[in-house]
């Protein structure tokens, strides 16, 4: 397992594109958060805002890049035929999948910590200018605040779980383009579908969809308006990731490489 891990790590490290993708994930996440913060103007009747959630808005975009990264770690091997070399080197297929999952986890974790830190910094610096300041009853974003810390840790976990979900899907689908489409469809389509319906159907969709459930962990001030509790939501996403990896493991063992 250690050898397989080191092999996977070397593969990712030397592929070149992976590092750029993760750097890109951090960059687009922080950039979108900054953009949202710059576009936010809180007026008297715009209702209760959640500064932490607004600051972490970049995750909506950043998760797509993390997902693409995770998809490519295996789909590119299928595309080039290198998967046969990998399986020849590590014949126990579950070990190979586990090694890939571990590498994806580590890298998504690193990218996630950087991205979330960047988002919160951007939020702390920019949001007071948008009217989300202590004078209007919004305390500055601080990790000393329990719910904010929960949102930060939860968002990092969210990115890791999205990476694992994507890895599982890619192992099942094997081709880059459809795999990315499936992952992004699973992430982005249910919230769109939910918008078309009224409660309680809307709420049910948001409770079981990976993105809306998983991102409930970002709520601090408006937690009551989320479809699902913060940790329960992350649990739903964990179930999605686990199911996808389980299916991947099953198929990887059954199928000819």
């Amino acid at each position: 397992m250690i050898a397989a891990l080191r092999a996977e790590w070397t593969k990712t490290r030397t592929a070149g594109g992976g590092a750029w993708l993760l750097a890109g994930a951090v960059a687009v996440t922080v950039a979108l958060s900054a953009g949202i913060a710059a576009a936010t103007h809180v007026s008297a009747h715009s209702g209760q805002e959640d500064p932490t959630k607004v600051a972490l808005g970049g995750i909506y975009l950043g998760q797509a890049v993390v997902a693409v990264f995770a998809v490519l770690t295996i789909s590119e091997e299928y595309g080039t035929g290198m998967i046969r070399v990998s399986l020849a080197a590590v014949p126990r297929r579950l070990v190979l999948l586990a090694a890939k999952a571990a590498t994806t986890t580590a890298l998504a974790l690193a990218a996630g910590v950087l991205a979330v830190t960047g988002c919160l910094l951007v939020g702390r610096l920019m949001l007071p200018g948008a009217g989300l300041d202590p004078a209007h009853g919004y305390p500055l974003i601080s990790l000393g605040d329990g719910p904010t810390l929960r949102a930060a840790i939860g968002s990092v976990c969210y990115l890791v779980l999205i990476g694992l979900l994507a890895l599982g899907v890619a192992t099942v689908v094997r081709d880059t383009a459809p795999a990315i489409a499936v992952v992004m469809g699973v992430l982005y389509l249910p919230p769109l579908l939910a918008q078309a319906f009224a409660d309680p159907l809307r709420r049910h969709i948001e409770q079981i969809a990976p993105m809306t459930a998983g991102l409930a962990v970002q709520a601090t001030a408006t937690a009551h308006s989320e479809p699902i509790g913060p940790w329960a939501g992350l649990g739903v996403l964990t179930a999605w990731a686990a199911t996808s990896l389980l299916l991947a493991a099953l198929l990887l063992r059954r199928r000819d490489a």
């Binding site: 693409v68 990315i180 992004m184 918008q195």
Partner: peptide, 25 residues
């Protein structure tokens, strides 16, 4: 394909999702 597919999808789904974050402008 990765960039073309991811970019193409994001263009059409992201605006309506960001809209729900409260930055309508």
């Amino acid at each position: 394909s990765a960039a073309a597919v991811a970019g193409g999808i994001l263009v059409f789904v992201l605006p309506s999702l960001i809209g729900s974050l409260g930055s309508g402008g």
